[in-house]
């Protein structure tokens, strides 16, 4: 049993008369020899770590060793002026708080990667608190999200060093959008449209970490990624479509990632990382070049 395309996933679900999440559950049972009970227990554990990452991020003082990131989630939590709605500000607060927990050496779930580890916690916390979505439904949404990521991993990439930031925060946002649509009652088509729309809207995003740290722009982008996921889910749930099928969008994402210059793939040589201010920050943070010993083998 393979999970290689969205069309194949839909076919398996329809032929067997089962929801999308059960196809992923059976994939895992078949592929890894786990029992259904083990998988639900592990999902509950993953979810608990995600909720904890949000809560500690909002509660404890948060500052990274470099000082580049400081209390982003708490600032948003304390906002009194809301551009869209108080809930919108909270969604941003949850995601950035969880990502700050990661940046401050706290415990997170790399979903799909450590760099994107605030996005799903932000979305699931939001669905739980503001839509009263049950834990069981969220576990099912997590299975659907895992299915999305498994396909993207095979057809494009989930690693910033291979596909840029679109591969990390883009994939997490697509996983999250699918979860929102599922949890709020969308059907298979609407779930897949939300994935296609998310990829469409995050296509081309480069990975350009200042001083090579998983901090800036990572924390801010975990915030903007949940907004794009929410926008895509809203469009899909309102009956809008991406027009381009989701499998084609995944191929496009892989093609963009492959063509992306290596300066924009986690090397800290381009984009935000290459700005004069970022360069000055990098010089301040990293050890002096003379402290680094050079050891070259004899010719």
């Amino acid at each position: 049993m393979r999970l290689e395309s969205f069309a194949g996933w839909r076919r398996m679900a329809e032929e067997r008369g089962m929801p999308l999440w059960r196809v992923v559950l059976e994939y895992e049972m078949h592929q890894k020899g786990r029992t259904e009970g083990e998988i639900w227990a592990r999902l509950a554990q993953v979810y608990a770590v995600m909720r904890d990452a949000v809560e500690t991020g909002l509660r404890e003082p948060r500052q990274t060793q470099s000082g580049l990131v400081r209390d982003t989630g708490k600032k948003l939590l304390g906002a009194t002026l809301h551009v869209l709605s108080p809930e919108f500000t909270l969604l941003l607060a949850y995601a950035t708080a969880a990502k700050e927990t990661n940046a401050c050496m706290g415990r997170v779930v790399a979903a799909p990667t450590a760099g994107a580890s605030g996005i799903l916690p932000g979305i699931y916390t939001f669905l739980s608190k503001h839509h009263q979505v049950s834990d069981q439904t969220l576990y099912e949404a997590m299975l659907i999200g895992a299915g999305v990521a498994l396909i993207i991993e095979q057809k494009a990439s989930i690693a910033g060093a291979v596909g840029g930031c679109q591969a990390e925060t883009g994939t997490a946002a697509a996983m999250g959008a699918a979860g929102i649509v599922y949890a709020l009652g969308g059907d298979i088509s609407q779930i897949f449209e939300s994935v296609a729309l998310t990829i469409m809207n995050m296509l081309g995003l480069i990975c350009d970490p200042v001083a090579g740290l998983v901090e800036l722009p990572c924390v801010k982008r975990n915030g903007s990624a949940v907004v794009i996921a929410a926008a895509a889910a809203q469009m899909a749930l309102s009956g809008d479509t991406a027009v381009i099928p989701v499998d084609e969008m995944v191929v496009a994402m892989g093609e963009v990632g492959a063509a992306m210059d290596t300066r924009f793939k986690e090397t800290a040589l381009g984009g935000t990382a290459a700005t004069p201010t970022a360069q000055a920050i990098a010089r301040r943070i990293w050890p002096d070049a003379e402290l680094v010993r050079r050891e070259d083998p004899p010719e």
Partner: peptide, 15 residues
């Protein structure tokens, strides 16, 4: 597997 996509559970910042 799905827990490669929803995991590992780890201390940050970098895998």
């Amino acid at each position: 597997g799905i827990f490669d996509m929803l995991g590992p559970i780890m201390i940050g910042p970098s895998s």
